[in-house]
């Protein structure tokens, strides 16, 4: 069923059933494969996108629920000044190991910084705890969020 979907500022007409999770519309219909599948049940955060600026798990968000709202993915987050700053910090700190979870990490971190420009350690813990990193790049994720928000790393990070 053709549905209109706004992704990264562009309106697409997509042919997918309304119950299809946004993740699979992005990946298999639109070919935007930067958003990753990890668990399918909102337990790992690899599929995190922004829907009207709010970080959401696209693996459990149906096309019908997205409706006319604006979707932003990792491919488009650099157009957002906060997103661009986060990506720059991720590069400067060289956060990724395997890198598979990092799109989701960056989307969650960008949503955090949009809401709390100078997040505390506890705020970082709360905002990022839903994003699994199997390589455990957590130390650098914390450091990069602090760097992107212009803060120096705290004692908690030991650095």
């Amino acid at each position: 069923m053709p549905t209109s979907l706004k992704v990264n500022g562009q309106v697409h007409t997509v042919d997918a059933e309304p119950d299809t999770p946004l993740l699979w519309v992005l990946r298999d219909v639109l070919g935007l494969v930067g958003t990753k599948y990890g668990c399918g049940v909102a337990q790992c955060g690899a599929c995190t996108v922004h829907i009207d600026g709010v970080a959401m798990r696209s693996c459990v968000t149906s096309l019908a629920r997205v409706g006319a709202k604006a979707v932003t993915t990792i491919e488009g987050i650099g157009a957002n000044p906060v997103g661009a700053k986060v990506q720059e910090a991720w590069k400067a700190i060289d956060v990724p190991q395997c890198g598979y979870c990092q799109a989701g990490q960056i989307m969650s971190a960008t949503a955090l910084l949009a809401a709390a420009p100078k997040p505390t350690d506890d705020e970082i813990d709360a905002a990022m705890n839903g994003n699994l990193c199997r390589c455990a790049t957590y130390i650098r994720i914390r450091k990069a969020i602090k760097a992107a928000s212009g803060q120096t790393p705290s004692d908690k990070m030991g650095a």
Partner: peptide, 26 residues
Amino acid sequence: PQSDTPAIVTGQPLYGIDVRVPGMLY
């Protein structure tokens, strides 16, 4: 820095799951 970091942070296709071949089914 790791050579693929710029591609990773911008969501470029790199992984097995990202492979697309013409006429491909799932």
